[in-house]
Structures are given as structure tokens and as C-alpha cells.
């Protein structure tokens, strides 16, 4: 791990005296997602997490871009900003850097974060601004009614790709790791316990955290993650310090092959000792990256979930504030500053 920062992602956020209930975070706005949308499960889980964090409601800010998922802030009784397509990480950075007492989340989608806002996403992660990014990945453009997105599988047939896409999709986790993100995780809308655990850890980490959430679009891409949900699924769940075993009855494991690359083998064939043990705290992100590559780029039959990387490194916010004296200049001090030394007086 890098030079340890003891600070926790919510350290500067004032704590509550009286605990909140889930209902305290439900806004008066009617939720308008399509029936069956995975966003409902994420919203409900998130409303359940907020009271547990024991931070003041008025010190929470949710910033979103544009897309179905970006309606999220309207449904939470916190401060919120529904901004511009792709720009939420930038706008949230301005809030987080100037106000350490605020807990700032970004809610975004695969088109918002990885296409139009790709630049802002990677730079927010690189800088390690203290924000938590929830990337709802439904592998489709929903709000614009069904075009392929930068995470749609190769060959995907949509209204804008009637003969199938010819674009290799982004793997959001690989991208985030390449962007020097210090906390990178993936979870899935249908697994409430995993979603809760992952989102809670993400916000507690200092600096920028990216959580990719596989989320089902009931209308334009339903079933995109079904193959990951059954008992036969190759959903590779990572737990720090534990051997990476998955599949029906834990029969499969991640092993390092003779050529040095990671692959999947039957545990009974290779023996449990050969199974790779996950280390999310490694400074070097290469294992995390390799694990992220065990995710299919086509139709999803195998994917890795869990916390890929969780390392402490100094945050942009704290370092910038350390360089800056206070927040507001006194008029006396500013008067002296603008006067300088090279002056002349006319009497």
C-alpha cells in the first residue's frame, strides 16, 4: 500500500446524533422508471444504506449526468444535482474539493460515463477526488430508446446497429484500473447483499471509488445478465485474502496457467492450493486487471464481481486543501497582496 492515509471517506462529514430511517431518504417525487427496471433495486438498496452511514442527511449530495439512471437524485431526499450528459464527475469534483464536509456520490450510466463522459470519468479517478461513482451498466441506451452503448456486446443488434455492432465494448473495471483508480468494484442489481456491502465499502474509502453495477433494462436489453444469475453461472466473486472459487458448488477456480495468464480450471483437477488468492490491497493493479479480464466481451456468461482494488493513496482534495490557506481571504491580507512592492504614490 502507498503512504497510508488514515482518513476514511466520510471523516469530514458531520455525524448524526439521532439515527435516520430509510423513509427519511425517500423524496416526494414519484419514481418514473419502467416497471421491472433494475434501477428500483439499486435505489431501494441505496436508501437502505444511507441511514447506516450515520452521516447528516443535509451533507449528502448526489450528482448525476443524463440517462435513465441519472434521474436517481430526484428520488432521494438529499441535496442533488441532475447535470449534463457525461459531466457529473467534473461537477461533483468541484463540490467535493471545495466542501470536505459533504459526502458526494455520482450516479451515471454506461453511455454517460463511458461514452460522452469518458474523459471526465478517467480524470476524476486518476486525481482521486473524494467521490463515489455508481455506474449503472445496462449495456444499452435506454432513455433514447435502444441504441447500442459502449458496453454492448460485440455484434449486438439494435436500432442503430441493425447488422450487429462491430465495436469491442469497454470493460468498465479494466478502464478504471487503467485510470489509476484506487477503489474499483463490480456488483449486480439482483444481489442486494452484495450491492449493499460493495456500496458501503466504496463510500468509506477515501478518494475516488468506482462501482460498476450490472443493471437490467427491462425494455431494451432485458436478460443481459441472466446468464450470470442461475446456479450454473460463472459469476466469479472476489473476496480479499480468499482463493477465487466459484461456479456450481464451488467447483471452479481461477488459476495461473503455464504461460502466466489467469484462467479457469476445475478445482478437483488442479487442487485447491493452485487457486489464486485475491489481494485487493496490492499497490500494483496488475492482478486486479487480470481478474477484470475474466469478464466476457460478448454475451455475458462469465464475469468477475467484488472489490478488485482497494488501496489507500492521498486524495486530491486533501492535498489541494493542504496547499491552500483557509477558505476566504481577509480584506487586509488581500489589500497587501494586490498592492505588492512595485508601487508609486501620487500625492
Amino acid at each position: 500500500m502507498s503512504e497510508a492515509t488514515d482518513f476514511h471517506g466520510l471523516d469530514h462529514v458531520p455525524h448524526v446524533e439521532k439515527p435516520y430511517q430509510r423513509a427519511d431518504f425517500v423524496s416526494n417525487q414519484e419514481v418514473k422508471w419502467c416497471p421491472g427496471c433494475g434501477d428500483y433495486a439499486i435505489l431501494s438498496t441505496f436508501q437502505g444504506i444511507l441511514p447506516e452511514l450515520e452521516i447528516k442527511q443535509e451533507n449528502i449530495v448526489i450528482v448525476s449526468g443524463i440517462g435513465c439512471s441519472s434521474r436517481f437524485p430526484y428520488y432521494l431526499d438529499t441535496y442533488g444535482m441532475h447535470t449534463i450528459h457525461g459531466r457529473a464527475p467534473a461537477i461533483a469534483s468541484g463540490i467535493a474539493v471545495s466542501r470536505p464536509d459533504l459526502a458526494v456520490w455520482v450516479v451515471t450510466g454506461d453511455g454517460d460515463a463511458l461514452s460522452i463522459g469518458g474523459n471526465h470519468l478517467i480524470h476524476a479517478l486518476r486525481r482521486n477526488v473524494n467521490i463515489t461513482i455508481m455506474l449503472f451498466n445496462n449495456r444499452i441506451y435506454g432513455l433514447t430508446k435502444g441504441q447500442y452503448s459502449p458496453t454492448s456486446e460485440l455484434g449486438k443488434v439494435t436500432k442503430s446497429s441493425p447488422k450487429g455492432t462491430v465495436e469491442v465494448p469497454f470493460n468498465a473495471v479494466s478502464l478504471a484500473l487503467g485510470a489509476e483508480a484506487s477503489f474499483v468494484a463490480r456488483t449486480i442489481d439482483s444481489n442486494r447483499a452484495h450491492l449493499t456491502e460493495t456500496l458501503t465499502r466504496a463510500v468509506q474509502t477515501p478518494g475516488a471509488a468506482l462501482v460498476e453495477i450490472y443493471q437490467n433494462c427491462q425494455i431494451y436489453n432485458t436478460g443481459a445478465f441472466d446468464a450470470l444469475k442461475g446456479p450454473e453461472a460463472n459469476l466469479i466473486e472476489l473476496r480479499h485474502g480468499e482463493p477465487i472459487i466459484f461456479g456450481p458448488d464451488g467447483s471452479l477456480g481461477v488459476v495461473r496457467g503455464k504461460d502466466g495468464s489467469l484462467g479457469v480450471a476445475r478445482v478437483t483437477d488442479v487442487g485447491k492450493k493452485k487457486v489464486v488468492v485475491h489481494d485487493a490491497y496490492r499497490e500494483d493493479p496488475s492482478l486486479a486487471f487480470e481478474l477484470s479480464r475474466l469478464t466476457d466481451i460478448g454475451v455475458l456468461r462469465q464475469a468477475t464481481i467484488g472489490v478488485f482494488r482497494d488501496v489507500a493513496r492521498p486524495t486530491y482534495d486533501e492535498q489541494v486543501r493542504d496547499q491552500t490557506a483557509g477558505t476566504v481571504s481577509s480584506l487586509d491580507s488581500l489589500q497587501e497582496y494586490i498592492t505588492g512592492r512595485d508601487t508609486w504614490t501620487v500625492s
Partner: peptide, 26 residues
């Protein structure tokens, strides 16, 4: 910075306006 000024060199012009607007909201 001695006068409490925060500056943010952004990744592009769009973000430069975005961070400033976020800071205004804050």
C-alpha cells in the same frame, strides 16, 4: 493559494466549467 483561492486545472474546457459550477452549487 495563500489567499484561500482554490484552482483546478481540469482535463478539458468542459470540465473546467463543470467544476466551477459544482463549486458554485457548494
Amino acid at each position: 493559494k495563500s489567499q484561500g483561492v482554490l484552482t483546478f486545472q481540469a482535463e478539458d474546457e468542459i470540465a473546467a466549467a463543470g467544476v466551477a459550477l459544482g463549486a458554485s452549487f457548494a
